[in-house]
Design a protein around this nucleic acid. Structure first.
Lengths: 228, 228
DNA sequence: CGATCGCCGACTGTCGACAGTTTTCCCAAC
DNA sequence: GTTGGGAAAACTGTCGACAGTCGGCGATCG
């Protein structure tokens, strides 16, 4: 790296792998709407701005493409993914599919220890809800759901969830506002834990269906307003 | 391309995108066990053998990594993914999760036209089973299941299925043999179509559970033998 | 004889450059 | 004013090269 001139407020670029650093930078820029959906990203421009060569930029872009944050058109370059309401519905439908499965698997292995850990995470979420960092709220919520998936003890399932997580972050961030007061957070997530504790598969399914349904309606409606 | 010297028996390299071509070549080489699980792939070696530079090789390798065919260790390079029985179980469990969901979604939109198309595909599979191309049998079977997912009308679900498809191809190919006589193929797949035609969600679920269960047991057992 | 340290080779991560292609912009013609 | 053509600019795809790093092998010391 020639450690050159203009990259303004980003002095980050010096910790690990250039590819990962560029990927993080791009991810943040997209989430924070510094790049708008549909925007084209120029490799040379990015490389210049970040003071690196095009190779790491290309690889980072390919990484984000596999995560669904960018789309590439051959000979055209990379574009910030623009999710419409239909795609969002699809994402939430897949999320429902995965979380249903995780809940069903978890019923068997659910015990007091895991319940305690999850309830603590709900506490963390409520605490985060009193702060004013939207991204923090989102992250803690995703962490809770990721913990449930992780407890389901299927690595591949977890990877599939992580894949759509990036898309979830994208569209939730686009709305810019979460419907998160501490009360509704605790009640809605306790419902999931209560269902798991009851070890009743049917009740688990109803609980997660309702939970994801509410989230989906909120986000899809929000996107609808954003687009129009 | 300098169209250089030594790439022996591979004159393929001249149709489209170099990255895709290299990716196809690597995929074929892995599926056909030309590269064994756990093998390290040298970028320079591959680039020399294929008569291209390292850039397309790297990108193709990253692509296959995202598909689960390769794993990369920083500063060490790419290795052919070695699936153990536990990972295989996870993959089939996720597949079950996705196909259950697709079946449930498809119940509503299932009609005579779609049933006819799917039954024709079963015919194709049976016809393929009389041939001696193992890969053809696998592809036609995957096509059938992919059609069901596609009818479920959720792009993101289809993408998730395509993702695990590559891993399925890998482990099925490792076993080297499918349990495919035309009779068992038609009966086992007709069972799925009959369940869909009945529009009974519970029956659909039982049908797909049984179907995937059989396939999983066969493959997991086969891998167990291969490893030992 | 065994263990540790240092050197050597190979390879990945990164870079700058070139060529073909796509897009854009300008000018002319209708 | 609009449209069509053509040249130029910009960009992606690809290439060869350099440097830092990791693993292996041999030499040296205990």
């Amino acid at each position: 790296m020639t450690s050159s001139k203009a990259h303004g407020d980003f002095t980050i670029i010096q910790q690990r792998n250039l590819v990962e650093q560029v990927a993080d930078y791009l991810t943040q820029s997209i989430i924070s709407q510094h790049f708008a959906p549909g925007d084209r990203l120029s490799e040379v421009q990015l490389a210049r701005d970040l003071g690196v060569s095009r190779a790491p930029v290309r690889e980072a872009a390919r990484l984000l493409e596999s995560r669904g944050l960018l789309v590439s058109r051959p000979r055209r370059g990379f574009f910030v993914r623009a999710l419409d309401a239909a795609e969002l519905n699809d994402v939430f439908d897949l999320r429902l599919c995965l979380e249903r499965h995780a809940m069903a698997r978890l019923v068997d292995g659910f015990d007091a220890g895991r319940e305690k850990v999850l309830r603590q995470q709900v506490e963390v979420m409520c605490e985060a809800a009193t702060g004013d960092s939207e991204s923090r709220k989102i992250e803690e919520d995703l962490t809770f759901h990721r913990m449930i998936i992780a407890y389901a003890d299927n690595r591949r399932l977890l990877k599939a969830f992580d894949d759509i997580t990036h898309e979830l972050r994208l569209c939730i961030a686009l709305i810019g506002k979460t419907h998160a007061d501490p009360d509704s957070i605790s009640t809605s997530h306790w419902a999931l834990l209560d269902a798991l504790a009851s070890k009743d598969p049917q009740r688990c399914r109803e609980a997660i269906d309702y939970h994801i349904g509410v989230a989906r309606d909120y986000v899809v409606q929000g996107i609808g307003e954003t687009v129009s």
